[in-house]
Amino acid sequence: MRRIWRPLLVLLLLLAAFVYLTNTSLLASRSAGDPILLAHRGIAQRFDTTALENDTCTAERIFPPTHAFLENTIPSMRASFEAGADIVEIDVHPTTDGKFAVFHDWTVDCRTDGTGVTREHSMAELKKLDIGHGYTADGGKTFPFRGKGIGLMPSLDDVLNAFPNRRFLINVKSRDPEEGAKLAAALKALPANRRAQLMVYGGDEPVTRLKSELPEVKTVSRGSLKACLIRYIAYGWTGIVPETCRNMAVLVPINVAPWLWGWPDRFLNRMEAAGSTVFLLGPYGGGAFSTGIDTPEEIKQLPVGYSGGIWTNEIEMAADALKSKPR
């Protein structure tokens, strides 16, 4: 019996040593540089997130305003970049006149003085709306932004022209593959170096369609992210990066990250070599997946020397907190 167990034990020890040496960050070099800050929706009015549903009108539950910026507007994006954002996330909808409107909601009823499905309007019609019309922090007694948002809904062209050298993450709001094709056509009209500054995420169908037409653009959808992480957890201990993880934005909740093989430095190095960018999200608890690194306490949880991406809804807080965090 000893003759059988002795070589098996040696094999197990060798395998354990291989797994350790392949995945320990103690033997990995760190990528130089500061973390990449991604401002989700830019600088926006914050709101109560209790019991949110897909159709909840968040403009009707904002906290008392501390600034004048409205999400998905050029002033908000400019302020986000000035605050320290490297990338700003924006939401888009196709319009009836062949443009893409930059606006979060599926309908215009909540935030604006208009009605109807966003994509059933022309860009010219959407530019006439007051996008600050519906915001209230006191149950409708006052509307602090009413009349101040007329003409502030930009098109995707407006945004890219206003910030020709800035990076954006574009969120496709539908599950329609044809929308992915339309966005791919719009991005194909851009120079290759400009496309390299853009990433796209959203529903599986439109993102898959866009990826098939523009494979060089980094994308992510729920399906592609799930496929990437499951495969990586299954055999990433070998040092092999699954094909599904290549050239994408890899979104990782901060409480899941320590369970990934080679976290942090080996993991970041592997994804970078595969053409992908890692973004840490807030803790995943089975609910919404778009929570960000939004508190100083969460910033403190970042690994020392972390140089990957950070997804945040509080860009000013994140940028300031990182300045005081040990590097």
Results as ranks from 00 to 15, higher is better:
98 G>P: 05
237 W>P: 07
92 V>R: 11
100 F>A: 09
123 M>V: 00
264 P>K: 13
48 D>W: 02
125 E>N: 03
243 E>K: 13
247 N>A: 03
73 T>A: 07
106 W>L: 14
307 S>Y: 07
324 S>C: 12
221 S>N: 06
206 P>C: 01
9 L>K: 01
9 L>P: 00
229 L>R: 01
288 A>W: 15
186 A>Y: 07
122 S>F: 06
3 R>K: 14
231 R>E: 15
55 D>G: 07
163 F>K: 08
262 G>Y: 07
92 V>K: 04
63 F>T: 12
41 R>I: 01
4 I>F: 13
74 I>F: 06
235 Y>E: 09
33 G>E: 08
57 C>L: 04
112 T>Y: 04
143 F>K: 04
6 R>V: 15
193 N>K: 15
289 F>K: 14
71 E>L: 02
11 L>N: 05
102 V>T: 08
257 A>R: 03
41 R>G: 03
29 S>P: 08
292 G>H: 01
106 W>I: 13
297 E>V: 14
203 G>H: 05
257 A>Q: 07
138 D>S: 00
151 G>L: 05
116 G>R: 03
231 R>S: 13
33 G>C: 07
99 K>R: 15
64 P>M: 11
54 N>G: 12
117 V>L: 10
167 R>Q: 14
124 A>P: 05
86 D>M: 05
9 L>T: 10
10 V>W: 10
80 S>N: 09
52 L>H: 10
134 G>Q: 06
172 V>W: 04
67 H>W: 06
233 I>L: 15
79 A>I: 08
37 L>G: 12
316 E>F: 02
157 D>L: 11
309 G>W: 10
